[in-house]
């Protein structure tokens, strides 16, 4: 084969490869963007985005960044969500134990009225902080679509585990253990 032919062939191969690579890249971009649209924004292994919310019925402000160095369990719930009621007693049961081990529970509530949550808190005797996400902004930010939804964030602010649906006592204990900082 002549040298010029070889050269031409090589040029063509490079051109075709480049064209196909660009087009495949564009398609991959489109498909991934499309998929991302309806999947959760905060995934396992990602940094949990910061938020700042009021503690229920008080002016006390809690921000996630302030809890750096601690394990944080973020639980999205509402009084009108039946399965949420199941796991609340478990959280209460384990709260004081893990509080001593430097793990905080943040129960992000999505109700709109104080009284409903107050009554709930009284009824179930909950002592962990309940934060009021009145407009559901934090829920949007974390792309939570079903309640209850729980994220376990480790001391470095990285999401270790993400659970949709109610937790059992055993599972809760296990996950909380995972995010307990080493001392």
């Amino acid at each position: 084969m002549k040298e010029s032919t070889l050269k031409k062939k090589k040029k063509r191969l490079i051109f075709r490869t480049a064209m196909l690579a660009v087009m495949v890249g564009l398609i991959a971009f489109a498909l991934i963007s499309n998929l991302k649209d309806d999947k959760s924004a905060v995934a396992k292994g990602e940094q949990a985005p910061n938020f700042q919310l009021n503690k229920f019925g008080t002016d006390e402000v809690v921000s996630l960044d302030d809890l750096e160095g601690q394990g944080v369990m973020i639980n999205f719930w509402a009084t009108y969500c039946e399965p949420c009621k199941e796991e609340m007693p478990y959280m209460e049961e384990l709260y004081s134990e893990y509080k001593d081990k430097n793990v905080e529970i943040l129960a992000v509530n999505l109700d709109s009225t104080n009284i409903v949550v107050e009554r709930f808190q009284e009824r179930y005797g909950l002592s962990f902080p309940i934060l009021h996400d009145k407009n559901g902004q934090v829920m949007d930010q974390y792309n939570v679509s079903r309640l209850p939804s729980t994220l376990f964030v480790n001391a470095d602010g990285v999401v270790e585990e993400q659970v949709v649906g109610p937790l059992t006592l055993d599972k809760l204990d296990g996950y909380l253990n995972e995010i307990t900082p080493e001392t």
Partner: peptide, 22 residues
């Protein structure tokens, strides 16, 4: 005294519950 408030009231097994916050 408001003993309980159910924004969207429904009966569930004879128990009054709210199914939403609206």
């Amino acid at each position: 005294v408001l003993g309980s408030y159910f924004p969207e009231y429904e009966l569930d097994d004879g128990e009054p519950v709210s199914v939403s916050k609206y």
